[in-house]
């Protein structure tokens, strides 16, 4: 028993320190889970079986894993919380925490002079779970029932803070497409640059069949930077001639 205690106590303190000192939030959460598991085993070892089980199922299994999921989904990065906004706060906090811890350890260590033990408590109602039931539905019924108010408040609060009603009509593909045609802008794809031009480079505008340039075919950033290449009119002519000349020789010289 003492052997078990020292191993688990060491592990849970390591878990607690690890939670505080690890830089990544996910690692912190995992360290905390370790501490909780150790506590659960300690509870069971002290014949509080139900509490130990609940600790594993509810705290470690549900709450802590939910934490982990949230951390992973939101993606808290390590750089987020490490900046001190108040200068010198950290050393002072460490000092005060150590002082408080030392005081409490001294106070608790000096004074624990009796313990009834859970064996007697468990025997009174014929078991651990029965004993808890006797307390929860007997002496502490009001506290137990009042917890309902707490849970409803939490659910209500989460709804208020997170639930967004649909204030504007839902945008589906149809409404979006109708809107786009109504607005009068070019509805289809734009011609890509360089298609009819001599170059296939992105900074050369596409040409319409009549030989005029399509400025919209150049990507916006290039237009904004002003690096659009002018179309060399002679080159166009030359290409046209060659194309047309080729075509003429193919079709018998008609232009």
């Amino acid at each position: 028993m003492t052997f078990l205690f020292w191993i688990l106590a060491t592990l849970s303190v390591i878990g607690g320190l690890g939670m505080l000192l690890s830089r990544k939030a996910v690692h912190s959460a995992l360290w905390l889970a370790l501490t909780m598991m150790c506590l659960a085993v300690l509870y069971v070892a002290q014949s509080a079986v139900f509490l130990g089980t609940v600790q594993v199922i509810v705290y470690t299994g549900a709450v802590m894993m939910l934490f982990l999921f949230v951390l992973m989904l939101i993606g808290v990065s390590a750089a987020d919380s490490l900046r001190e906004s108040i200068r010198g706060q950290r050393p002072v906090a460490v000092l005060v925490a150590v002082a408080l811890g030392a005081t409490l350890i001294a106070a608790v260590g000096n004074a624990l002079d009796f313990s009834v033990g859970l064996q007697a408590a468990n025997a009174e109602y014929g078991g651990n779970v029965q004993g808890l039931a006797a307390l929860m539905f007997g002496r502490y019924l009001i506290a137990f029932e009042a917890t309902a108010a707490l849970l409803i408040t939490a659910a209500l609060g989460a709804t208020i803070l997170a639930h967004r009603e649909r204030l504007f009509p839902r945008q589906d593909q149809r409404t979006r497409s109708v809107e786009r045609f109504r607005s009068g802008v070019h509805p289809g794809q734009r011609p890509s640059p360089g298609v009819y031009a001599r170059h296939n480079a992105v900074d050369v505008p596409a040409l319409l069949p009549d030989g005029s340039a399509v400025p919209d075919s150049i990507p916006g950033p290039l237009r904004a930077r002003g690096t659009v290449r002018e179309i060399d009119a002679t080159a166009t002519e030359e290409v046209l001639d060659r194309l047309v000349g080729g075509a003429a020789s193919d079709t018998g010289g008609e232009r």
Binding site: A143, T147, L150, G157
Partner: peptide, 25 residues
Amino acid sequence: LLFVTSNDLLTLFIALEILSLPLYL
């Protein structure tokens, strides 16, 4: 209402939470 009449530390704590949670919101 529970907070001012609670007669043990557990009820006191739960009453404190019941009154605090709505206030935070």
